[in-house]
């Protein structure tokens, strides 16, 4: 087990796309263990993606289970994850281990359907909402070389929540 070095902006490698994982072996499991240790070593991150430590494979970890009143699927290791459906949108404030000392508002889908594989290559499927869905979208962006700063909307941009009228 080891704590890996986190790439931070303006490192150009963070803009690189990651390749799918094809071999599900002990080396993959060892790497994921290191990735998790690295996530826990930092400032309360609810997720981490492999390219943040310079490994350009489609691997992310998401865990929002430590947060109060937050629907979640526990500690998730997602290999080759893919969002297959999006619904709704909301603004939320995000920060990133790779962008120290900056937070910004980002628009994300509020509901997603997600496909992925586990450490053994078995297919997984999830329906997610809210904070967990946001965390997954944030981490999956890393796999395509995108950071939340690529999506930040003006601090003055705000969307007024529409009132829902009962009919």
């Amino acid at each position: 087990m080891a704590i890996l070095e986190i790439l931070t902006l303006p490192d150009p490698r963070l803009g690189q796309s990651s390749r799918p994982v094809e071999i599900f072996d002990a080396a993959l499991r060892d790497f994921v263990a290191d990735l998790e240790e690295t996530r826990r070593a930092g400032p309360a991150a609810v997720g981490i993606a492999a390219p943040q430590v310079g490994c350009f494979q489609r691997i992310v970890i998401v865990d929002v289970s430590g947060r109060r009143k937050t629907p979640n699927h526990g500690h998730l290791i997602l290999i080759n994850p893919e969002i297959v459906h999006w619904d709704g949108f909301a603004i939320g404030r995000e920060g990133c281990l790779s962008v120290p000392d900056y937070t910004g508002n980002v628009i994300r889908a509020t509901h997603i359907q997600l496909k992925a594989q586990d450490l053994e290559g078995q297919e997984l499927a999830f329906e997610m909402e809210g904070f967990e869905a946001r965390a997954v979208q944030h981490e999956l962006d890393h796999l395509d070389g995108l950071l939340f700063v690529d999506r930040v909307v003006s601090r003055r941009t705000d969307l007024y929540r529409r009132k829902v009228y009962q009919t």
């Binding site: 930092g42 400032p43 309360a44 991150a45 609810v46 997720g47 981490i48 993606a49 998401v62 939320g92 404030r93 995000e94 920060g95 990133c96 281990l97 937070t103 904070f131 946001r134 965390a135 944030h138 981490e139 939340f148 929540r161």
Partner: peptide
């Protein structure tokens, strides 16, 4: 008037 929490996500 609407009060909402600002949820910061670090990922």
């Amino acid at each position: 008037v609407d009060v909402a929490s600002v949820d910061l996500l670090i990922g």
